[in-house]
Design a protein around this nucleic acid. Structure first.
Length: 603
RNA sequence: GGUCGCGUAGCUCAGCUGGAUAGAGCAUCUGCCUUCUAAGCAGACGGUCGAAGGUUCGAAUCCUUCCGCGAUCACCA
């Protein structure tokens, strides 16, 4: 989406900042570098508050008195200021209803209100998901996908061009383990023959490998072999390693099996991504990129960024930066993880020359890796290295501890989504809702609500905090939740349908001249949407969007409860309230779109 | 042990570059469906912001130390 360029309505802060400076210059002959504002607390009269204390560095005197003088000046000089009061060092300013009415008039027909005009600073590539292909996706991947997708949407809304990407870890010892186990124990099973999703089938063999491996170790230990030796020399492990060597050598049989099983996994992943509602613009495969980066290492050696040890391995010394020495090429000349990531980053810019920044959505267990990666790219002199960001997020843990695929202690992504939809269905049945809907309509709605609950539950938390997920305790559908917000949206749509039928919209151009306090609060909250998007983009934090939306919705429900919309006798007021409700609905839908959550017409 | 992150109500979380009496939801308890959808609204209860120092007119927020939890420090990815 390309937001069109337009004039943003001028915020009250911008106006007041200039006027407060003017007041201080006039009254005290002092230039103020900046003015500090905050929303007025609910227990005081006013809409916006100027904090006087910071001015005391420049203006000598009593804060209450200074506030009083500035207040009087503003009321006299600024049309939008209709009153003020001073409590201690806080100047609370009352903004006239007409200002908010005008503001609403300016935004009510702006379709993509809140979105910034596109900037020209180049595209951002956002990487997320990036799974291994030996097992199905689980709850940890869900957090990763939701964050990556949402941050992409937020960056777009804040004016950036975005490429969504992932690097699929399709090669390595892990997939060889699944392949070997399938070859040994699989009896030719396929997704078709078993009715299993491809990723699930392959994942089962990964577990089967681990079981056989552990049995071999136990048998060897029983025969007196040292445990550590057994772990390294168990025949099944040696065979898997041999398989990896054959793959790297391009062995026909191994490569064919590898293609077949990865193919199954991709079909399974595709289904999961589709259900989860995430997508990608470009894909990278590790099998294509794992050899990249070696030539860059050679260049780095020439430049003196890296150095070679006697055994031939190549390193970078980051001790000056407070980090350690890090290997970038093995003594046998093969690439390590870091080599690959250096090469892949450079490749991405080659493939997409407009890319001027990248976001890596990867768990915080890799904080150190990315710190080093970014530093290396900087030392290699790439201009875009300044604009790399590791979107580091906390792990999703179970009450029993870490999720481990090998041990089967994972919350499966497909199962979880299914359960959430089922919970939504149970609640709807209990409340006796929408009995006139067809089964297909219901199924679609429950999926939307279930996913809304799950996505909101995960995204409302600050990304860097770890999440403890208890499968025994279901995700809430009440209070600060996705369904609560969806429900409010549905209520608004219900009003709009009725307003349409009764023609409540068409009351001519005349607008209200005064606002109900709840209407004023709503417009103030709407005003915050554009800056919230910018803040969320700067901080790579969907949680800010979630919290904003919750505040807006809470405010609307309070308004809805206290003020009649369609029951209002005054036709002008009624039309205004309908339009206000419509705008709130649009912003809810817009904000939820940034979170990747849908909104229902009814629920 | 070194480095990084986190620690706010019984539970889950907000709290922007320091600003007024630290806010929500869940849970518990009270009211509100003959008026636009009660997955809602209004209210009660609940906190030495991990601890101690420091900077400041002012600290949950910044600095130092300590405690607790987690991650990381591989010629693994």
């Amino acid at each position: 989406m390309q937001p069109y360029i337009r004039e943003e309505p001028m915020g009250i802060e911008t106006i007041l900042e200039a006027k407060v400076k003017e007041a201080v210059a006039e009254l005290f002959s002092v230039e103020l570098p900046q003015v500090e504002f905050q929303p007025t607390r609910k227990d005081f009269e006013g809409d916006i508050t100027v904090v006087v204390f910071p001015m005391l560095r420049y203006v000598k005197g009593n804060p209450a008195q200074i506030g009083e003088q500035i207040g009087a000046y503003l009321k006299d000089q600024v049309q939008a200021v209709s009153g003020y009061n001073v409590i201690k060092g806080f100047l609370n300013i009352v903004i006239d209803d007409s200002f908010y009415i005008d503001f609403f008039g300016q935004i009510q027909d702006v379709a993509d209100y809140g979105y910034a005009a596109s900037n020209d600073s180049g595209a951002v590539m956002v990487e997320y998901s990036s799974p291994n292909t030996n097992k199905p996706l689980h709850l940890g991947h869900i957090r990763n996908n939701l964050l990556g997708y949402s941050v992409s949407e937020i960056l777009k809304a804040s004016g950036n061009k975005v490429y969504k990407t992932q690097i699929i870890n399709d090669r390595g010892i892990h997939i060889c383990k699944s392949m070997l186990a399938w070859k040994r124990f699989g009896n030719g099973e396929t997704p078709e023959s078993t009715g299993l999703k491809g990723d699930k089938l392959v994942g089962n063999y990964y577990v089967a490998f681990d079981k056989a491996y552990k049995e071999e170790i136990a048998a060897m230990v029983a025969q007196g072999v040292d445990k550590e030796v057994a772990e390294k020399e168990a025949p099944i492990l040696l065979e898997a390693q041999e398989m990896l060597r054959k793959w790297e050598a391009g062995d026909d049989e191994v490569v064919a099996l590898w293609k077949k099983m990865n193919g199954w996994v991709y079909e399974g992943f595709e289904e999961t991504y589709k259900n989860l509602g995430v997508d990608f613009d470009t894909l990278y495969y590790e099998s294509d990129t794992y050899l990249l980066g070696k030539d860059v290492v050679a260049q780095g050696l020439e430049k003196g960024v890296f150095y070679r040890k006697e055994d031939g391995s190549v390193w970078i010394d980051l001790t000056d930066e407070g980090l350690d020495e890090k290997i970038v090429l093995r003594s046998d000349g093969t690439a390590v993880y870091m080599t690959q990531d250096i090469g892949t980053a450079i490749q991405r810019v080659k493939d997409h020359p407009d890319v001027n920044g990248m976001v890596y959505t990867v768990g915080n267990e890799q904080d150190y890796h990315f710190k080093v990666l970014f530093l290396i790219l900087k030392k290699l002199g790439f201009s875009w290295s300044e604009k790399l960001h590791h979107l580091s997020y906390g792990m999703v843990d179970l009450p029993s501890g870490k999720m481990k695929s090998r041990e089967g202690t994972v919350v499966d992504a497909d199962d979880l989504m299914q359960e959430m939809a089922q919970t939504a269905a149970d609640i709807a049945a209990e409340l006796g809702k929408l009995e006139d809907y067809s089964e297909a309509q219901k199924r679609e709605l429950y999926k939307m609500i279930g996913l809304g609950a799950l996505k909101y539950y995960i995204l409302k938390v600050d990304p860097k905090k770890r999440i403890l997920f208890d499968p025994e305790e279901s995700v809430d559908f009440q209070g600060n939740t996705g369904p609560f917000i969806q429900y409010t949206y549905a209520r608004i749509q219900s009003i709009l349908r009725k307003a349409e039928e009764t023609g409540a919209f068409d009351e001519g151009p005349a607008s209200v001249t005064e606002l109900h306090p709840k209407e004023k609060e709503l417009i103030k909250q709407l005003q915050l949407y554009p800056e919230t998007i910018q803040l969320a983009a700067e901080n790579y934090s969907p949680a800010l969007i979630a919290n904003y939306t919750y505040d807006l919705v809470k405010e609307f429900n309070s308004f809805y409860q206290q003020v009649s919309i369609l029951g209002e006798a005054d036709r002008t007021k009624k039309a205004f309230r309908v339009k206000l409700a419509k705008k709130v609905g649009e912003v809810i839908a817009s904000a939820f779109k940034l979170l990747g959550i849908g909104v229902p017409e009814r629920m």
